[in-house]
Amino acid sequence: MTAPTDTEVLPATREVVLDLHRRMVRIRRFEESSGKLVETGEMPGFLHLYVGQEAVAAGMGSVLTDDDQITSTHRGHGHAIAKGAELRPMFAELYGKTTGYCKGRGGSMHIVDMNRGMLGANAIVGGGIPIAIGAAFASQYRDDGTVAVSFFGDGATNIGAFHESVNMAAVWDLPVIFVVENNGYAEFTPQEKHMKLTDIAERAASYGIPGVIVDGMDALAMRQVSLEAVERAKRGEGPTLIEAKTYRFFDHQGIKGMRIPYRDPAEVEAWKSRDAIRLIETIGVERGLVTAEDFAEIWAEVEAEINDGIEFARNSPDPDPADILDDVYTV
């Protein structure tokens, strides 16, 4: 099954376009500003930025409720924001402050927001996939009508945890959606060097579940396939593997670009020309759903939210080393 990629035919309302746009802009600006702050040394750690892939998280995020659960990856800021995470505790976490989502303990690769169904980012490739089927198992067990979604990269589909999890979820018809964000690279290794397939969606066939390919730069298309997969899961028909073809605009880690030219600059430019945010702005304006001013307003509002988040994080207290043993166990 291949999803329609022609956005012209998809139902798109003004609200949906604005919603998807805001989700993506929040991600983009969060990532760009965080990247800068790490580069200047104001923020610690290292970042795997989501810029370029926003449509995938935004499309899926727009069809989920706070009760649905997601698991994420080392490249997880976008998933959290698309799921509705607030920027203040996100920035604060990256700054390592007590007001952060993990009280400064987790940092960039471990954002969590249990109130919004964000079950946590994961620094172990593939680590979140089995956890998602556990969350879906709980949905089925409780019969509460919720679903679970696991985001992961092309590289992660080579790891045992992926195969074990998809198979088990398929056998048990668990309400889970596997979203592989195929950005063509696992770190610096191109897809053709780490697997024989071009379309990872084909892997679904070996487990007897639908595999769907979608344009990961098109938020409306992503929203459409997400909706279908979620509904299928809620009907009790089991999991779907969605392969979103997408691209990261920055390096594997950080902003600064490539240590070695492992990617063809032309390839990078070609993908950049299909920028997901610009795409939805074009569609919105062309179809007369949204004006350019409406979009500009969103950018401005997000900018204010970004500045507020950074200011909040800067002014937040550092964790107290005396509390270092807190939360090792549930007490």
Binding site: P44, G45, G96, K97, C102, G104, R105, G106, G107, H110, D318, P319, P321, I324, L325, V328
Partner: peptide
């Protein structure tokens, strides 16, 4: 190190 996972914030990690 104390009996805790490695924390992220530099102030915690330095103490750790």
């Amino acid at each position: 190190a104390p009996f805790a996972p490695v924390p992220y914030a530099p102030i915690l990690e330095n103490a750790y």
